[in-house]
């Protein structure tokens, strides 16, 4: 649905050129939830805003449904933006308008629905985001989570195919964040809406996204399925973000700090696996058939979005030959292993 090719953006700051994006290539499929994660200043906001040209890229192309939007004139840009919804960290609601009027605003300005049709559509959207009772209130009378729900309803008003989320939950408390993420997931499934979001919170990516791209210094340093990137972070920036979000994974990625070295006798191995295998006694079977003994030093079984996964830190004791055979069995069952020492 979206293809970004060699996207670059430079700003002129006090006569010096500063690069915000540098040769970004990305492909985002229809119907998926795609996350872009990075620290502040990494360029994620510039990247997201390039998708509806709130930010004009300096080089490269942005193709939406096969069309390069960077060359669009004003007319076509208006039409394009009407097909793309956007929600914001600080909601950006019109304070002088009621909740219902806020949702009606894009319809009034850009659709050719009659007043009655618009009223109906607004009621429908209010119900979708669970705010039917608050139609007549002003934004200042709402909580942060409710304001974001209005933002979402407004963004969906003209039935877009794409929703851009600019740090949509960063101003919300953890509980409200979860409820907004659930709403977004629900919308994605019910309406088949493609969602592109930027965030600095790994938690948001884990809960919501199918795929993720890690951006740093204006470049994509790593991208892929969330479980792959999360369980096997390669770039230092990704590793440090995973570490901050999940100390357990951090300890398993770099166990040398976590354990008394003199107590370790065997081979230290980290196993990771995703999917149905999480619920099967594969490890038990492999070990029962082997002379290798194992100690679990650390472990986690959880899920990323709705994909179950497990990761275990094991110390294996046995002959090299037996350990090799265990590794071969693990491979056969698609349990990824990495020898840490």
């Amino acid at each position: 649905m979206i293809r970004i090719e060699g996207l670059g953006k430079t700003y002129l700051v006090k006569g010096r050129e500063v690069s915000a994006l540098d040769g970004v290539d990305l492909e985002i499929a229809k119907g998926e939830i795609f996350g872009i994660i990075g620290r502040s200043g990494a360029g994620k906001s510039t990247l997201l805003r390039s998708l509806n040209l709130l930010e004009r890229p300096s080089s490269g192309r942005v193709l939406i449904d096969g069309e390069d939007i960077t060359g669009f004139d004003r007319q076509r840009l208006h039409a394009l933006r009407q097909r793309i919804g956007m929600i914001f960290q600080h909601f950006n609601l019109l304070n002088a308008k009621t909740v219902a009027a806020n949702i009606d605003w894009p319809l009034r300005c850009t659709s050719n629905l009659t007043a009655a049709q618009r009223t109906e559509r607004v009621a429908e959207l209010l119900a979708l985001v669970g705010l039917s009772e608050h139609a007549g209130k002003y934004p200042a009378q709402l909580s942060g989570g409710q304001k974001q729900r209005v933002g979402i309803a407004r963004a969906l008003a003209s039935r877009p195919q794409l929703l851009l989320c600019d740090e949509a939950t960063s101003a919300l408390d953890p509980e409200t964040t979860q409820s907004i993420l659930r709403l977004l997931l629900d919308i994605n499934r019910r309406l088949g809406l493609t969602i592109v979001l930027i965030t600095h919170e790994m938690q948001v990516i884990r809960t919501l996204c199918d795929r993720v791209a890690v951006i740093d210094g204006g470049r994509i340093v790593e991208s892929g399925k969330v479980a792959d990137v999360f369980l096997h972070p390669r770039h230092p920036v990704t590793r440090s973000m995973v570490a901050q979000d999940d100390p357990l994974t951090a300890a398993m990625l770099d166990p040398t700090h976590a354990f008394a070295q003199d107590k370790l006798r065997g081979t230290l191995v980290r196993l990771t696996y995703v999917g149905d295998i999480t619920y099967q006694p594969v490890l038990s079977d492999i070990m029962a058939a082997s002379a290798v003994r194992f100690t679990i030093l650390q472990g986690e079984v959880s899920s990323i979005k709705d994909l179950p996964f497990g990761q275990l830190l094991l110390e294996l004791e046995g002959s090299d030959e037996d350990v090799r055979r265990v590794f071969a069995e693990l491979d056969r069952h698609h349990i990824h292993h990495e020898v840490l020492q």
């Binding site: 509806n52 840009l77 208006h78 933006r81 956007m86 950006n92």
Partner: peptide, 10 residues
Amino acid sequence: VIEACQAMGI
């Protein structure tokens, strides 16, 4: 707020 309006294609 103005940016949000621009993003709506108004």
